[in-house]
Design a protein around this nucleic acid. Sequence first.
RNA 1: GCUCGAGUGGUGGAAUUGGUAGACACGUUGGACUUAAAAUCCAAUGAGCAUCGCGCUCGUGCGGGUUCAAGUCCCGCCUCGAGUACCA
Length: 930
Amino acid sequence: MGYDFQRIEKKWQEYWSKNQTFKVCIDQNKPKYYVLDMFPYPSGSGLHVGHPLGYIASDIYSRFKRHKGFNVLHPMGYDAYGLPAEQYAIQTGTHPEITTEKNILRYREQLDKIGFSFDWSREVRTSDPKYYKWTQWTFIQLFESWFNNDTNKAERVSDLVVYFANNGNKNLNAVCDEVDDFTDAEWNSYTERQQQELLMKYRLAFISETMVNWCPELGTVLANDEVKEGLSERGGHPVEKKLMKQWSLRITAYSQRLLDGLDNLDWPDSLKEMQRNWIGRSEGASVIFNLAGNNSKGEIEVFTTRPDTLFGATFMVLAPEHELVDEITTADQKEDVDNYVTWAKNRSERERMTEVKNVSGQFTGAYAMNPLTNEEIPIWIADYVLSGYGTGAIMAVPGHDSRDFAFARHFNLPIIQVVVKEGEAETDPTEWDDSYDSKEGVMINSGFITGMPAAEAIKATITRIEEMGIGKGTINYRLRDAIFSRQRYWGEPFPMYYKDGMPYALSYDKLPLELPKVDSYLPTKEGNPPLANANNWVTEEGYPLETNTMPGFAGSSGYYLRYMDPNNESEYFSREANEYWKDVDLYIGGDEHAAGHLIYSRFWNKVLFDMGLVCEDEPFKKLINQGKIQGRSSFVYRIQGTNKFVSYGLRKDHPTTALHVDIDLVSNDILDIDGFKNWRSEFNDAEFVLEDGKYICGYEVEKMSKSKHNVQNPDALIEKYGADTLRLYEMFLGPLEQDKPWDTNGIEGVFRFLRKLWRLYFDDTDELIITDEKASADELKSLHKTIKKVTSDIERFSFNTGVSAFMICVNELSDLKCSKREILEPFAILLAPYAPHISEEIWQKLGNDQSITTAEFPIHNDEFLVENTFEYPVSFNGKMRFKLALPVNMAKNEIEDAALSAEEAAKWLEGKTVRKIIVVPNRIINIVVG
RNA sequence: GCUCGAGUGGUGGAAUUGGUAGACACGUUGGACUUAAAAUCCAAUGAGCAUCGCGCUCGUGCGGGUUCAAGUCCCGCCUCGAGUACCA
């Protein structure tokens, strides 16, 4: 019979499930370890081989940590809200809940077949009211919080109300929208509505009229990270800017803490870099320019990272949306300015981005004063200045900013050089091809800073403008507040209602606010979100409830916390659970979440941390991005105009068209011709030009997709080879972090390895052949070398080399005809994290009645690895010429003598002088001759 | 444009601290076993040269450099991938 993986895998999957082998509870006697996978969105097409890659790695690590005595939390759940189920509902009327449930069942079935050690008693689903109750609860926490810059953390709005009643907003250093000063007396005289409006400007979850990314095709707004190159991430539909009243999260309050927190995280550098870029901190100064002439009372504030170049500012540019545009535009320019503003407004984001090289703008007719030169400079508007960054206005320094340079050239505006490269002389800017943007250089034509290096001039200018009261050093961030409303059905309802036009939070005992049934999943005729279709969508008192729903990232922002205490009915999680499990020790998932989920989660966690609800400031200590598995598409080559197909090697002889062919019809690039003929009716009578009697297919590495016929789902492979083979093979494919093409060609090798391993323990009739005979030195060496290698490979997440270490060991033990318990029992434990089913079976057959998961991981003993001799590679001038076995403890000078007097050395020494001998003990001997 | 990452046999990849380049596996070729197939086992397999079983030369994207020694470090390029994009 041999290795009967189907029987074995079924048996152990049932055993684990029945015995709740992986159920985990708080155990103060054991150290905790929390291994988390990014939970999947259960899509209709089920798992393909790319999904389990990260799960297999995390499962190996979890099982390893259990063997090492840790209490391992390794949960799984579903990110169950999402667009596809909703779109399916719109098309078919099927409630998204039904579609989602069906997909989850399919996912679960597929996951179970791979033999993961998840504690399913902790499963969470973001769409489950028992879960989203806590998403809504957290939203209320955000609504009831504001950010105090003095303490650098979130505090309660209730405390803010007390402060306002006693002090007004004097001396308050909060992150907020623009607020005028008010006194305690004024505050106390305000109506409730006025007070609520003011508080809204401080809340961490707030509603406001903001410029949002509106996607007409999807009928919803999107957060910045959901827009890629002016198109929606989902579906690739055009996105436009639109002013709408929406919920947002004041994540910008945490910009600096989100940036600083990265330093101590064990995350890939590339991912940290992406987050740093996304946060986009830049240091500079804000400077106030007074308007010249009739408008002399007005002022324009700009942000610049180069205050040193202030003397070179020869004009100003405002974003077309800037609030002063109307006010400052002169009568004779009004028409042109209005036309430009209208034109700019109607340009899609995509157009604006792709037409970056086209310079456009319009003079307003107004002038400002350069505060340092007192020269009048013209004020223009142009859409290369963005309303959303800095102050939406810039001082243009065409000599030292390439965009300003292009603009000045186009509109014939003056250019002044104020920075010169060290040691170079001033040149005529009218002859330049480009501006000099570098900070390396010395100031010229710049009044009191002339002669200073630019870096020093930046500091000196900031000091001067602060003294003059016309500006100050400031820091700007690119990060925007997260827009949190979606005009969709399938998402968490906001626990909010409206009274007198202002939103209020529901009381906690009203949670969860369950998603209502609706007749239509589309927006209403009036253009309101789908929830407006619900009957009676009001509070008990009759106040209307919020009709927007939360975005996809709401449910995923704090799910790792719920896993700590998933069945708690009265709290999100208990203090005890949080203090025990603390944070995620290892988080594995894709890097597509760098600017989304991983920033929102960190923010979410920090707010809860500030409120004393969680004990760690950062949620994910170590993070690994598993690479994507790309598809490997196969092609057949049809001779144009015929139904004749030519084999890969001969395709150049004919004009051909390459067609994707289903990868299930191809094995080792050889086409199953009959299968192909039956694949589609049009190929029934196809003819073939073969090479060596075979039809060889071409291949290409592409994204896995249905249309390319290259999707590999794991079920068929498990059917054919078993889960243990799949697990080993996915790991053997290459380094975890690397993108790699899926190619089943190599899977046979891993399958052969497991069968070979089986034969070490069992004979042809499946009788155990293990003996209690004492192991030999060679056998012990092979085992202990492997223990050492496999342990260190798991610890550094090098799973592919771990698999190869197993193969080497099994090859060696087979050669030694080893069948000794002393060797093969520990070996089974070593393998258990990678191939748990076969290891359990062997373990049981060896007479153990407990699951192998309870066994202690073997520790290698260096004594068995000691060698008496080392085979030195002997090099001459760095080129290896021969090998020489010498005792390991031989003295350096003896090694030199031995090498020089070796028989093979003579030929290389003949007629040469030995200039130098390098001996690195137990490494290498290099003889330099000349 | 900017930021980050990667380029090693026919293929996936290994080489952890600068120290034998190509581990392990696939594929291919030849052989054993078998009526045959599957399975299994053995041998060869970077390229080139060779008085083809002594051996030599070249070889980790390209060009330089440091070093006794470079896939690994430094400088300059090329190609591919990812992120981001008028961020002042």
